[in-house]
Design a protein around this nucleic acid. Structure first.
Lengths: 252, 252
DNA sequence: CGCTTGCGACGAACTAAGTTCGAGTGCTAG
DNA sequence: CTAGCACTCGAACTTAGTTCGTCGCAAGCG
């Protein structure tokens, strides 16, 4: 039986390289530690305890072993991020591009990504730092890119819009995760519900914070989802229309 | 002489509370450790070595003391983030809102914020997790909000756009910082320049990555600044126009 | 059939970092 | 002058990422 490279660095490189002929070896009949099992364990930890609780020792404990046992399969902890994001991306289902409904297609796809991120709280932090050559993220990018192009968007505009949307969605998920985490961690008084935030704003001095005070209701209104759809709509709606020259040139 | 509360928790709370009558005590004639000196030292560390190198011990070393000496002034390390973001925000200069030039005013203000973030690499990570009651961030928000309102934007739209823009700028700065950091850290082969990224894209299999391959030039084109201005323009240009109803409702 | 060899598993240990403890120190009020 | 208090700081505790050296097992080989 042909073995994979024993050096985990080479394995990581192999994961980032284009898919060559040799597929990943199927798991042995026994119960050895594999990259897949590590990924499963890590995802389980993140789903139940959040990304901050994701430690090498925690993963090893789920697998019933010690921390050093993982280092035959991973390079370092960053490698785990790679695996997690890869797994998440692989579960994104992308539609066949349809020029008639490309807006909702994009919106739905990003909502899917957002839901994945929120399902694994804090994991978007890993996605933000991901090297852009990860194969699974490239697959998703390709799919989203195809939808935009089918919508008649200029390739250059589509490419940059892709960046903007992806970045925003990651940041949005990260912020949401952090907020929810704080809400579950009421050790300090830093947990602010909607009403408390509103009352804080209205209690601000009117001379230095006139607008924040006056429009406190607007500033604190809307669910996370409302704001998400608003922003994506803002970006998407501006794509297919000719950009009015208003001091901002973005042609090239 | 009246002393501040001895418990650093109360001091932190005091920093977040609205500015009451008692101003912070001026520094003693000698050379004691103060919150300001801690902030200075921390900023210096971040500017020269990046946010990842910001440790309690490193700050203490800059101040010529041990790590425990700081805990009389800060609650924990998160508190340092608070101080840093506060300092950064306090250096943002906001223009008097001008209805005629509100677009460039917003763009310039966010460019200022972006430059601050990039000057202290990785610090935007702290900004992303910041509690929204930080007084200094509120000041900046108030100023930006005022500009949008002066531009005739609906309060609700302005409030949500503020969120979207701030989130994007933070995420943008974080990504840029991470990328630059990787470039300076050539221990692995994960450093990808523009050309290398391009060649990677063109080397992708044409059957599964047709668009990425075909438009590799567009996908890798543009400086960070180009993309920054593009995205902000995308959002800003859509604000003052009536939102076409395209499945996205944001009223309430 | 027994020996070798090499890979994967893993206990132990090293380092770094956040945080706490408790003793010391100097300033200020009474 | 002295008591109290805030501040300082060395030492130590805890957690976490990572490495080292050993062990066991299975495949090939004589």
């Amino acid at each position: 039986m042909l073995h994979m490279p024993s050096d985990p660095r080479q394995r990581r490189a192999a994961r980032h390289a284009q898919p060559s002929g040799d597929l990943a070896a199927p798991s042995s009949p026994k119960m050895p530690i594999t990259v897949d099992r590590i990924t499963d364990a890590a995802l389980q930890v993140v789903a139940t305890e959040g990304y901050d609780a994701l430690t090498i020792r925690r993963i090893a404990a789920v697998l019933g072993t010690g921390p050093s046992s993982l280092y035959a399969h991973i390079v370092n902890k960053d490698d785990i991020d790679d695996l997690l994001v890869g797994r998440l991306c692989s579960e994104i289902v992308l539609p066949e591009p349809d020029p008639a409904t490309w807006r909702t297609q994009i919106l739905d796809a990003y909502a899917q990504i957002r839901d994945q991120y929120l399902k694994y709280p804090g994991i978007s932090r890993a996605a933000l730092g991901m090297v852009p050559t990860n194969l699974d993220t490239l697959r998703v990018r390709e799919g989203l890119f195809a939808i935009l192009l089918a919508g008649g968007i200029e390739p250059q505009t589509a490419a940059w819009a892709l960046d903007a949307l992806s970045l925003y969605v990651s940041a949005y998920a990260l912020e949401q995760s952090l907020a929810r985490q704080r809400r579950k961690h009421p050790d300090d008084e830093w947990v602010l519900g909607h009403e408390e935030l509103l009352s804080r704003f209205t209690a601000l001095p009117a001379d230095t914070f006139p607008h924040t005070r006056r429009y406190a209701a607007e500033l604190t209104s809307g669910t996370g989802n409302d704001r998400f759809r608003f922003t994506l709509g803002l970006i998407i709606n501006n794509l297919s229309r000719p950009q009015p020259s208003s001091g901002t040139q973005h042609d090239r």
